[in-house]
Computed example of a mutant assay.
Amino acid sequence: MRYFLLASASLLLLAGCSDSNDAAEQKIEKAAETSATVAGPIPAALGLSEAQLIDADLVGTDGKELGDVTQVLRDREDKVDRLLVELDGPGEHYVNVPILGLKPVVDGDDTNLQTTLTKARLDALPEVKLTPP
């Protein structure tokens, strides 16, 4: 019985963490959509609008998808200097990827962002912890 109660409490804590992370993700997505709508079609970086940047996948030099752009981030002068990217792989792992060194590549109707960073180098970047609303 004690084991069952401990297991149930652990599941509730994990569910709470998951709900908290989901809420943080939804907050970031909503902010990104709002920002892209306000910015409109004006190029934000790399000749792409904020909406195009958010819609892009991060790909390696081999074209393999490495992650999804979640948010466009700016420096103090309001210039896009990095992107919040959810890396592919087990679990959710967010990192800031510098815009410097990224290259837009067209893939059919999509435009992706190519990086020379390997999966291992991306995984080694400091993880960004999402904060719930």
Rank of each mutant, 00 (worst) to 15 (best):
Y3A: 13
L5V: 12
L6H: 11
S10C: 12
A15I: 14
A15L: 15
C17W: 14
C17G: 13
D19C: 07
D22G: 11
K27F: 00
I28T: 10
A32K: 09
A32C: 09
A32V: 13
E33Q: 14
T34K: 07
T34F: 05
T37L: 14
V38M: 02
V38D: 03
A39C: 04
G40C: 09
G40Y: 04
P41Y: 00
I42P: 01
A44V: 06
A45G: 03
A45K: 00
L48K: 12
S49M: 03
A51F: 02
I54T: 08
D55E: 07
D57V: 01
D57W: 08
D62F: 02
E65Y: 04
E65K: 13
E65N: 09
D68V: 11
D68R: 12
T70K: 13
Q71D: 11
Q71Y: 06
V72C: 03
V72T: 07
D75E: 10
R76M: 00
R76A: 05
E77G: 07
R82K: 15
R82F: 11
L83P: 06
L84V: 07
L84Y: 11
E86C: 05
G89M: 03
G89N: 03
P90V: 15
H93P: 02
N96G: 05
V97R: 01
V97F: 03
G101I: 07
G101W: 06
L102A: 09
P104I: 01
V105A: 05
D109C: 00
L113Y: 08
A120M: 07
R121G: 01
L122K: 12
L122G: 04
D123P: 00
A124G: 11
L125Q: 07
L125F: 08
V128W: 01
K129Y: 08
T131N: 06
P132E: 14
